[in-house]
Simulated assay, not measured.
Amino acid sequence: MADNSKFGIAEAQIVGLFMESVSYGMFLVTFGLCIRALLFERDRSFIPKRWADVRVGMLLVAISMFIFATFDVAFGLRHNLDAFIFYHGEGGAAKEFSDISYWVNIMKTVDYVMQTAIGDAILNYRCWMVYNKSWKIVLFPVLMWMAILVCGIMMVYVEVTTTSEALLTESRITPWLDSIAVLTLVINILVTSLIVWRIWRVRSKTVESSSHPNRLSHVIRIVLDSGLMYTLCAIIFFGTTLAGSNAQYGVSDVIVQVIGITFNMIIIRVNNGTASEGISWNTSALPQSYPLRFYNNTVDPTFTVRTEVGVEVEVSQIRDTDSRVVKSDGPWKGAPGVHWNSDNASDVTEQA
């Protein structure tokens, strides 16, 4: 166990508020850019998208993360004001912070649990989409996600029913907190690895059919970068909980913001990443092991390549007689699906 006399609860709360305020500023910047990417046309910043083109689910997730991230900073500020300004009893600020059943402490725990649950749920959702909505692939991660919710509820219950002074390092709380930290870390490593593995396999099978095979490499980098940021914070938090250090207050506060930052960054980077690049595909070389769905369509020719982070590339095409694409042009768009409409041909939907 760590010697918390060298890093007391009062110091930990002040440092935690500073760390979270800095990360919240980063979150606000990414949130603004994320909302712009979701609601406005990419090349025309002040032209809103049609409502049918807006990804409502992702928009609701972004707003929910913003609410929890903002509340967590506000609750942290309120708690510090209570401890250092408004409390005049014995024991000073340390005694005020030790009141684990105080409603601000409880609400910060709720913020942490809910933000973690949302972030892990989105990660599982992306994995589910990448694997063609295969439940057997995400069954274990989903069970771990449900366990996180149970542990979070139990942790809140313990805090509410605790009448004596206690910190997050107390034996009544640490089993639930340690479980959340472990499960979050395992979900991040496992699900991120599954997503990257799937994209890498698709890339290796389509490398000869695309004139820009690095497009999927770009997607892999996006997933790895965002996953690494979240996973690194989860590892640090797990270490602080095992050590029983009060440093876990600051780290947990930062994680609440980092979860939102990683979500926003994926939306932003995909929206801005490779819009100007054209793609040429030899469709006969595409992997034949993935399910295809055909139906008649008479609209203008388009070809949409699914990326496994929930976005798509839409490219208009002109085809010659040997069924190869000879011209392509188009922007990245934020909507899932893979569609290919060719002249006098069928529309193909492929889950990569």
Rank of each mutant, 00 (worst) to 15 (best):
Y87F: 15
W145M: 09
K333Q: 13
S179P: 01
Q248E: 11
G330H: 05
I187M: 09
A166M: 14
V299L: 05
M144L: 15
I266H: 12
V158R: 14
W128E: 03
M65Y: 04
V160S: 14
V258W: 14
M58E: 10
C151V: 01
A62R: 01
S284W: 05
D111N: 11
A181K: 09
V223E: 15
V299Y: 05
T109L: 14
F84V: 06
S45D: 02
A234W: 01
R203Y: 03
L59D: 02
E312N: 13
L77N: 04
T109C: 14
Q288I: 03
A352I: 07
P301I: 00
W103L: 10
E41A: 06
N344V: 09
V315W: 05
I318H: 05
S23N: 04
A2E: 12
D253V: 00
C233E: 02
A121K: 04
F18W: 08
W103Q: 06
K108Q: 15
A74Q: 00
A247L: 09
L77M: 06
V15D: 03
D3Y: 09
M1N: 11
E20N: 07
A285M: 12
S210L: 13
F303C: 11
F40D: 02
N341G: 01
M265H: 04
L167R: 14
D225M: 08
K136Y: 09
L38A: 04
L28P: 00
N282A: 13
G92Y: 02
I259H: 10
G92V: 08
L39Q: 05
L190F: 14
A62I: 00
D300V: 08
E90S: 12
G25M: 08
W197M: 12
L194I: 05
T274S: 07
L183A: 06
R126P: 00
T304F: 07
F31M: 13
P175M: 05
G310R: 02
S245M: 04
V256R: 13
N272C: 01
V223R: 06
L292A: 07
T30Y: 04
V325A: 07
R221W: 14
P291W: 00
A52I: 07
E308Q: 14
S45Q: 07
I266C: 13
D72H: 15
T192Q: 12
H88P: 01
V150C: 12
V311Y: 10
T161P: 04
M229N: 03
I173C: 04
I279S: 10
I189P: 00
P213F: 12
S134P: 00
F18T: 06
E96N: 09
V104T: 15
G250I: 01
E208C: 05
I259V: 14
W281K: 09
F237V: 00
L149W: 13
A234M: 02
S171P: 14
L286D: 13
G16P: 03
S280P: 01
L149C: 10
V219M: 13
